[in-house]
């Protein structure tokens, strides 16, 4: 029977939360595997799973390369009757001076292709970024079923 919880419809229900430290390269692989497992648990389609995992991979790698490592908080939740995965990447690195510039394709301060941030944004349903130069960066992405 379809769930019709009338009160829950208006609120966000967090199903579960976990935080993963992402300090080195092999943590990026770990982060990907974790996102895959959580995304498939809440029933995201294969394509949506692949999109959020790829976005997570980009952001986790960015964090390791540019942010000096940080954490990935993963959350599965239910909002407006839909399920989704939300990821928050937080580092205490040098921060991003010009976010608009950083979101542009082809922009990179490193050796990558410069598709990381913009690509992660395109692959997600929700994208939020806060960054203070010298203090760190916090990026939230979410993908809904």
């Amino acid at each position: 029977m379809p769930r019709l919880a009338t009160k829950k419809i208006l609120t966000t229900v967090i199903i579960k939360t976990e935080t993963l430290p992402v300090m080195a390269e092999h943590d990026v692989v770990k982060a990907r595997q974790m996102v895959r497992q959580w995304a498939s648990e809440i029933g995201l389609s294969l394509v949506d799973q692949t999109k959020i995992i790829t976005a997570a991979s980009e952001l986790a790698r960015n964090m390791v390369i540019y942010g000096g490592g940080g954490t990935m908080e993963i959350q599965s939740l239910e909002q407006y009757g839909r399920r989704g995965v939300k990821l928050v990447f937080e580092d205490k690195g040098p921060g991003i001076a010009d976010i608009t510039q950083a979101l542009k394709d082809g922009f990179t301060t490193g050796s990558g292709m410069g598709l990381g941030l913009g690509g992660a944004k395109r692959l997600s349903n929700e994208f939020e970024i806060e960054s203070t130069p010298g203090q760190g960066t916090r990026i939230m992405i979410a993908r809904w079923k």
Binding site: V47, T50, K51, G118, G119, R122, L123
Partner: peptide, 12 residues
Amino acid sequence: PAVAITLVELGL
């Protein structure tokens, strides 16, 4: 297919 769709969306 899922990988191909994602890559295109990524801009690659």
